[in-house]
């Protein structure tokens, strides 16, 4: 998979993602009125075939959720963002966002949280490359069914490349961990390479 991006392109992408995460955590901190510490996200390019096995161990033992949201920008930038997290974690952040768990359906809470995490992060990424994104409505692919691996397998099947971003938000008194997968189809990978090349040339 390292062949897909050159060393330089990969570093550039990591840098863009670091900054995007910084922007996202700043926004979240203002929104939630609390400090948000964000670990520098580890990114990794993985082939879609590897994905299910990798997440199976982490998410199969507990109740977990998998939420998908499509994104579409200029210059052929497009893909699908998948947020994976354990439901126990979700309730923590839900409380912080002011949800009363009895008055709102669990699915609605899940899609809201995922959408906030995904769009704040991807908007940050888009701004840096002079792009802007539109999003599809978030959709819960799997929740409480214990078939995360299967759901991922079905989703990931059509994608050439996945950019795996481990995200760990640390809030005061709370910690929240989740994984974000950016699934990118073949032709969009080429488009992203072109965007990265352009950025590298500008420096």
């Amino acid at each position: 998979m390292s062949k897909v991006f050159s060393e330089e392109q990969r570093d550039c992408l990591q840098e863009l993602i670091n900054v995007a995460m910084g922007l996202a955590s700043d926004k979240l901190a203002r929104f939630l009125n609390t400090f948000v510490h964000l670990q520098v996200p580890a990114i990794e390019l993985v082939s879609s075939a590897q994905i299910p096995a990798e997440f199976e161990t982490r998410y199969s033992s507990t109740d977990s959720a998998l939420v998908s949201q499509g994104f579409l920008g200029n210059d052929g930038l497009r893909g699908e963002a998948i947020v994976l997290y354990q439901l126990e974690n979700a309730h923590r952040i839900a409380a912080l966002l002011g949800y009363e768990t009895d008055s709102i359906s669990e699915l609605e809470m899940l899609t809201d949280i995922s959408s906030i995490l995904t769009t704040t992060f991807l908007n940050g990424l888009a701004t840096q490359i002079d792009n802007s994104l539109s999003y599809s409505a978030p959709r819960v692919l799997s929740s409480r069914q214990g078939n995360v691996a299967q759901a991922l397998l079905e989703t990931a099947y059509h994608w050439e490349l996945a950019l795996k971003v481990d995200i760990s938000y640390q809030l005061i008194d709370h910690s929240f961990n989740c994984d974000m997968l950016l699934l990118i189809p073949g032709e969009a990978v080429v488009n992203i390479q072109q965007i990265l090349t352009r950025i590298l040339e500008e420096y």
């Binding site: 926004k27 979240l28 203002r30 929104f31 966002l97 359906s105 699915l107 609605e108 899609t111 809201d112 959408s115 906030i116 769009t119 704040t120 908007n123 539109s134 999003y135 409505a137 978030p138 959709r139």
Partner: peptide, 16 residues
Amino acid sequence: SVLELQSPSFSSWEQR
């Protein structure tokens, strides 16, 4: 959340 985060929010008929 839309104003503060300047990002979109969604609601689906399936939930509401």
